[in-house]
Amino acid sequence: MTTLTVTDLHKSYRLRSGARVTTLQAVKGVSLELSPGRTVALVGQSGSGKSTIAKILAQLERPTSGTITLDGAPVGTRGRALAHYRDHVQMVFQDPFASLNPFHTIAHHIERPLLLHGRATRANLREKVCELLERVNLSPATSFLERRPHELSGGQRQRVAIARALAPEPTVLIADEPVSMLDVSIRLGVLNLLARLQREENLAMLYITHDLATARHFSDEILVMYRGEVVERGPADDVILNPQAEFTRQLLIAAPEPGNNPRFLAEAQRRGVPMPDHLALAEENS
């Protein structure tokens, strides 16, 4: 299995306004390790550099400095070496309404990575596509093949995006706020799907989010980012229950977490509202 290691990653952007040139330090010295079967959550507010890290790991951006290694070997940035890297590292984008090409069918979105990474031949292509769609709970798969993204709901689209990311059979999966654009009622379903796939495939996963509750529930380790730097890291429960950094504490206070609020739970129970699993779980743990 594959371990992706990031060491001392820096990324700065040059901003030009007229004659003045300033540099924006988006990521300052971040190190992290993604190993099989483990989920690392990257938590932070907007503009803290989370998505920049995702883009660098997906090789959509080049880091200013720092090294990325795959099983100890520095990763290639072009040609065959890049193709090899993409075999191993795939990404799920934040916005399922933007990440699927409105012009193409669902089948096209899954077929291309399958063919590009040699996971299917022309002969068994259809079969493979259906298999992937079924795995992300889009069934009957054949009814989705010829549909276009605009005919699907947000949750269904994100499932297609997940199937596409899984098509090259990656060992590392980067999920950049995979549920932030989805309706609240279907977020848990998509997150549970990701968790199940991660268990089945023994994936190394980077889960980027600004939601501390799901970060705690779905990940083993949490990294808290603030203005491009990691201000706190540790096992998920430690970070949430015993925050060390000032910023983490602020984040925890700012997040409305009804699971920790007895008044909400009592009210919900009184009205007979079914509890989402992670809240029930949180109750048991605390």
Binding site: L60, L82, A83, A98, S99, L116, R164
Partner: peptide, 13 residues
């Protein structure tokens, strides 16, 4: 700069 172009790049197009 749309995500579907970025996604195609990540897929290796």
């Amino acid at each position: 700069t749309r995500d579907y172009v970025q996604a195609a790049k990540v897929a290796g197009e």
